[in-house]
């Protein structure tokens, strides 16, 4: 059986794995803000140092972390190259050809951007490596709770998310089954031009959609018969709890934010 774990959760036990998912989500937001507030190498270096320490504490293998980076390597290259050639700095360009020119500032700026994107990718993938989908939805539900004041269906949203996550492996298996059934009937998914190939997927999509609707219907009945009446009166078995670990991580986040702001004020721009 295929094990499709959404967001590639890496199942080990570590300091970072044990953190409260709410804190991890907030930490991620603060960290991203820090990356964008950092406007010089010193500040970005501090951000990077914090992330490296976090990766070490999470015990996620370094190869896994780089695998996350591999997905966006093209994006990084394009951004870097464009900035390198089109950034107009002061003074004489180091190299010039037609409209293309490389300035000293351009080089610094490109490197800076590469670092920024790298940190963004690594920190967000670290969240999914260290947090189960269920914990993540619980965390999101808990963080969005204030929105209940404006009648936003927080509980329902969280339930939809967790059922969707729960159904991904089942639907993947189903897709595979339908695909094989259509292949057995002579369907061809591998040859022909792109348009033809996309068309070949219609006989997979329609049965899949029908079966998903049937599943939804049955799941609805099963939930009904287990007394589901929406979020009101409902209790939760798993309670999220703040502990000393979370306090330490929260202080690190706060210190980082303060540090980056101070450096932004006192050290100024990139150079």
């Amino acid at each position: 059986m295929k094990d499709v774990s959404f967001g590639q959760y890496y199942p080990i036990d570590s300091y970072v794995h044990r953190l409260d998912p709410r804190l991890k989500l907030l930490f991620l937001i603060v960290y991203i803000v820090c990356i964008f507030l950092a406007n010089n190498f010193a500040a970005l270096g501090v951000c990077a140092a914090v992330l490296i320490v976090t990766v070490i504490f999470s015990r996620v293998p370094i190869g896994k972390v780089f695998r996350a980076v591999r997905g966006v390597i093209v994006l990084i290259m394009i951004t870097a190259v464009l900035n390198l050639f089109f950034y107009t700095g002061e003074g004489e360009p180091l190299w010039e050809w037609g409209i293309l020119a490389i300035y000293r500032e351009g080089i610094f700026f490109s490197v800076f951007l590469i670092l920024r994107i790298l940190l963004l990718v690594v920190c967000s993938s670290l969240l999914t490596y260290t947090t189960t989908p269920v914990a993540l939805t619980d965390g999101i539900e808990s963080l969005l709770t204030p929105l209940k004041w404006i009648k936003f269906p927080v509980h329902e949203l969280a339930l939809i998310m967790s059922i969707a996550l729960r159904m991904i492996p089942a639907l993947t298996e189903e897709t595979e089954r339908i695909k094989n059934a259509q292949k057995a009937r002579g369907a061809d998914f591998e040859s022909g031009n792109p348009v033809k190939r996309i068309k070949a997927f219609i006989p997979i999509l329609i049965p899949l959609l029908l079966s998903a609707l049937r599943r939804a219907d049955e799941l609805g009945d099963a939930m009904d018969s287990r007394c589901y009446m929406g979020g009101k009166k409902r209790t939760k078995y798993k309670k999220l709890r703040f502990s000393w670990r979370d306090l330490i991580a929260a202080s690190v986040g706060a210190a980082l934010l303060a540090g980056v702001i101070v450096m932004r004020i006192f050290l100024g721009g990139i150079l």
Binding site: V134, L165, R166, E218, L219, A222
Partner: peptide, 8 residues
């Protein structure tokens, strides 16, 4: 497969 709500 159609009556379990949660993954765990």
């Amino acid at each position: 497969d159609n009556q379990t709500v949660a993954s765990i």
